[in-house]
Simulated assay, not measured.
Amino acid sequence: MKKNRIVLAGGALLVIAVAAIILIGVGSGGVQATDNAYIKADMTAVAPQISGVIRKVAVRDYQPVQKGDLLFTIDDRELNAALRQAEADVARAKADIHRIQVLLDAHKNRIRQAQAVLKVDEANLQLARANQKRFRSLAQEGSGTEQDQEQADAVLAVQRATFKRDEEALQAAHKQEKVLQSQLDMARAALTAAQARRDRAALELSYARVTAPVSGVVAQRLPREGSYVHAGQTQITLVPLNTLYIEANYRETQLADVKAGQPVNFRVDALPGIEFRGHVESLGPASGVSFSPVAPHNATGNFTKIVQRLPVRIRIDDGQPQAARLRVGMSVRPEIHTDQ
C-alpha cells in the first residue's frame, strides 16, 4: 500500500514537472515565450565593382563607420589614364563638330550666292528671249537686219547655257550640303559615344574608392594593402547595429493569438538582469523546414506528427540605452503579450 502511494506521488510530481516545463517554455495565459530566439541584423556585404590591387585600407576590425565613409581604395592609375583618354576623345569630337559646322555655314552662304546668281541668269534669259523675239519680228518686217537677229539668237543661246550651268551648280551645292549635314550628324553621334565612354571611365574611376553603403560596424575585413581583389568578391561585411531585430521561432501552437504590434519583453543571456522592450513586427509566411532542400514528409506509412516552428520578427523599441550593448547572434528569451 505504501509502495502504491509512493508510485502515485512520483507520478503526480512527474505530471507537475512536465506541466511546469510546458508553462515555462510555451507560456501561459496572455504570454507566449520561447528560448529559440536570436538577435539578427540585415548585414551588408561590401564587394568592389572592379578588380585590382588594394592601395589603402581605411578601416579596422569592429570599427563603427557611417554611410559614405571610405573603406578601402584600389590602384586607380590605369583608370585615370583611361579617363584622360576618354576626355581627349570628347574634345576631338567637339572639334570635329565645330569644323564641320563652319564648313556647313560657309556652304550655306555659297548656296545663297548661287541662288542669287541663278535669279540674275533667269532675268537675263528672259531679256534675251524678248530681244530675240523682237529682232525676229523686225527682220520679218524688213526693219531689222539679219545680223541683229543672229546676234540676238546667239545671246539667247549663251544665256540658256549660263542658266543651265548655274542651275546645275546650285543643285550640286544642295547635294554637298546634305553630305556636310550627314557628316555633322555622324560627328554628333561620335561625340555622344565619346561622352558615354568618358562617363563610363569616370564611373569606373569612382569604383576605385569603396565606401560604406550603410552605417554600421565592420564585422569582417578581408582586404589587405597590396592584395589583389576581384570584382564582386565580398571584402567587408557591415553590421547595422541600429537596426537589430529578433527572430523568434515559435511553435505553431503558440501563434493562435499572436499579431503584429503586440508588446514584447525580452531578456538576453549575455546581459542578465536587464529587460528590454519590443513589439511584434511580422509573422513569417512559412515554417523553417519549408525551405529545406530535403522534404521532411514521411510517405512510407509510418507517420509521426512534429509540431512545426514559424519565425516571428520582433522589432526592438527605441529609447533604450542598454540596447547599444546588443550584438548579432545573442540568445534571447522573448515574451509576447498576446492579451494586449
Score class of each variant (00 low, 15 high):
13 L>A: 13
14 L>G: 15
24 I>T: 06
25 G>E: 07
55 R>W: 04
60 R>T: 12
64 P>A: 02
67 K>H: 01
67 K>S: 02
70 L>S: 08
91 A>L: 11
91 A>W: 09
92 R>G: 12
102 V>A: 15
105 D>W: 11
111 I>G: 07
112 R>Y: 10
114 A>N: 14
119 K>S: 14
122 E>Q: 13
124 N>V: 13
127 L>H: 09
138 L>Y: 14
155 V>L: 11
158 V>S: 11
159 Q>H: 11
163 F>A: 00
170 L>M: 10
177 E>M: 06
178 K>S: 11
179 V>R: 09
181 Q>C: 05
181 Q>T: 13
190 A>H: 07
191 L>T: 04
192 T>L: 11
196 A>E: 00
200 R>F: 15
203 L>T: 10
204 E>G: 05
206 S>P: 08
208 A>L: 04
211 T>K: 09
218 V>Q: 08
222 L>N: 09
226 G>N: 00
231 A>H: 10
234 T>C: 00
234 T>L: 03
237 T>E: 07
238 L>I: 03
239 V>Q: 08
248 A>Q: 06
253 T>C: 03
260 A>C: 02
261 G>W: 11
264 V>F: 10
269 D>M: 03
277 R>H: 13
287 S>G: 08
292 S>Y: 07
294 V>D: 14
297 H>P: 00
298 N>G: 01
298 N>I: 02
313 R>P: 04
313 R>M: 06
321 P>V: 02
321 P>A: 02
322 Q>A: 08
330 M>H: 05
337 H>R: 12
337 H>M: 06
